[in-house]
Computed example of a mutant assay.
Amino acid sequence: MKLMERVKATLRVKRYSLRTEKTYCYWIRFFIRFHRMQHPANMAGNEVRQFLEYLALERHVAAATQNQALNAIVFLYRHVLDQPLGEVGNFSRAKRPKRLPVVLSHQEVMDVFEHLSGSMLLIASLMYGSGLRVSEACRLRVKDIDFARHVITVRAGKGNKDRTTLLPPSCAQPLHTHIQIAEQQLTSRIETNAIPVSLPYALDRKYPNAGISLAWQWLFPSSKPCFDEWGRVVLHHIHTSAVQKAVKYAMRSSSLTRPGSCHSLRHSFATQLLSQGTDIRTVQELLGHKSIETTQIYTHVLGNGFAGVRSPLG
């Protein structure tokens, strides 16, 4: 088996997301090309250090990008080649700038929503009202909505972890409508030799009818079928880029004083909860942050880190 095929197979066995698979494969190929197609088994820590320094000093990549490349290479040596990488040693690290996230007031969010409609409005509402990432909102299935408990279950979020978060009351009726539409579309597809929805891992072998059951239907399906990673024709969810484009256009149309994005809606969810006095640990769980330190950035946005100090100007 060729090296990149082994990388993909190992990533899938360990159940990494498709997005991570594409990213890791990109950096591993880049690493090999940088060293003029040498096989990684013939290289070690010194070559890795040279590559990481090139990214920082020549390509001027962000710190997160450099770390991403390092993670991909470490995965290659540890899990695919089963070969200790050895000491990489000190290398020039890309500087991580300390920036506060862009957050919007509630009124600014409402102004943005004035320029959205249909599925795009509902997805944006879930990012703001439930704190979902854009990818998490796009991947919602019918079974993930619990109207009785007012809860949304996020499946395989960042870090491949499940969590629950709030179901905004104002989103309940639009979600009911989307489920009814999903049911009608499913009935129509079954009558015309249905194309099943894409399913995680080997679920279609364990439950052969899952792909044509209502519970597993996407709330926000793509307009056209596509090929999955095994070459089968399936119906996937709406692409995140379509949502990002719609939200950016809405933000420009609402004349915000600072540039925002889909993630700004999630940031705004966090700051609104904290300003209402919600415990930071609860906000951490709702956002799915691994570390409380990540959530604490929002206290700086609110200015709560000043211990009651007041400006002398009054």
Rank of each mutant, 00 (worst) to 15 (best):
S241V: 13
I212L: 05
V247D: 03
S261Q: 02
F220Q: 12
M251P: 03
S241Q: 14
R205C: 00
C262P: 07
L235A: 01
P225L: 02
G231W: 10
D204S: 12
H236I: 00
S264G: 03
V233A: 02
A242L: 12
S254V: 06
S222I: 12
W216C: 10
A250D: 11
S253H: 07
S264A: 10
D204Y: 01
R232T: 00
W218Y: 15
S253I: 01
K206M: 05
E229Y: 05
H263A: 08
R252T: 08
S241C: 07
S222M: 09
K248Q: 10
S222G: 15
A246C: 08
K206F: 05
A210T: 07
A210S: 09
S213H: 10
A210V: 11
L265N: 11
P221I: 06
Q217V: 13
K245Q: 13
C262H: 06
V243P: 10
V233W: 00
W230V: 02
L256N: 06
S223E: 15
I212W: 00
M251H: 02
A215S: 14
I212R: 08
R252I: 06
L265T: 07
L265Y: 03
E229A: 04
P259D: 12
T240E: 12
I238S: 07
K206T: 04
V243Q: 08
R252V: 10
C262G: 07
V243K: 10
P208A: 00
G231M: 03
S261M: 02
L235M: 15
L214P: 05
L214D: 08
H237V: 02
C226A: 13
L214F: 07
D204R: 03
C262S: 12
P221E: 04
S254Q: 11
L265R: 02
K245V: 04
H239G: 12
V243N: 11
R258F: 13
S241I: 12
N209H: 06
S213T: 14
G211F: 01
C226D: 13
S222K: 09
S241R: 15
L214Q: 10
A246H: 06
V247T: 03
L256D: 08
A242Y: 10
